[in-house]
C-alpha cells in the first residue's frame, strides 16, 4: 500500500474524534475521543517516519503516548472529583466557568 492510504485513515480517525468531542456530553467519552485524535496523529507521525526512513517520527509518537497517558490521568482524576461531589457527570451541566 502506498503511504497516502495510511494518511487518509489517519485523517478519517481524526475527524471521527472531532465529531465525538462535539456530539457526546459524558466527559469520559470526550476523553476517549481525545485519545482517538491523538492516535490519528500518532499514525500520521509513524507514516512520515516510514516515508523518510528515520526514527524521529516514532520517537515523537512515543512522546505523544506519554502526553496522552498524563492527560488521561489528570482527566480521570477530575472526573472522580466531580462524581465525589455528586455533581452531574455531564459537560453541559458543568458550566460554572462560563461566567
Amino acid at each position: 500500500m502506498t503511504l497516502g492510504w495510511y494518511l487518509a485513515v489517519s485523517a478519517i480517525i481524526f475527524s471521527i474524534g472531532v465529531g465525538g468531542v462535539l456530539v457526546r456530553r459524558n466527559p469520559l467519552v470526550i476523553l476517549l475521543c481525545l485519545e482517538l485524535m491523538l492516535n490519528a496523529g500518532n499514525l500520521a507521525l509513524v507514516t512520515f517516519s516510514r516515508m523518510y526512513g528515520g526514527e524521529g517520527g516514532q520517537i515523537f509518537a512515543l512522546i505523544v503516548m506519554v502526553v496522552a497517558a498524563c492527560e488521561v490521568t489528570v482527566g480521570l482524576g477530575l472526573i472522580v472529583a466531580i462524581s465525589r461531589r455528586n455533581l452531574p457527570v455531564d459537560v453541559d451541566e458543568l458550566h460554572e466557568l462560563n461566567g
Partner: peptide
C-alpha cells in the same frame, strides 16, 4: 521533559482525586 510530565501528572491526579 516526558519523565517530569509524568511526575507532575501523577501528583496532580493524587491531589485531584
Amino acid at each position: 521533559v516526558a519523565s517530569l510530565l509524568l511526575l507532575v501528572a501523577a501528583i496532580g491526579a493524587i491531589v485531584l482525586a
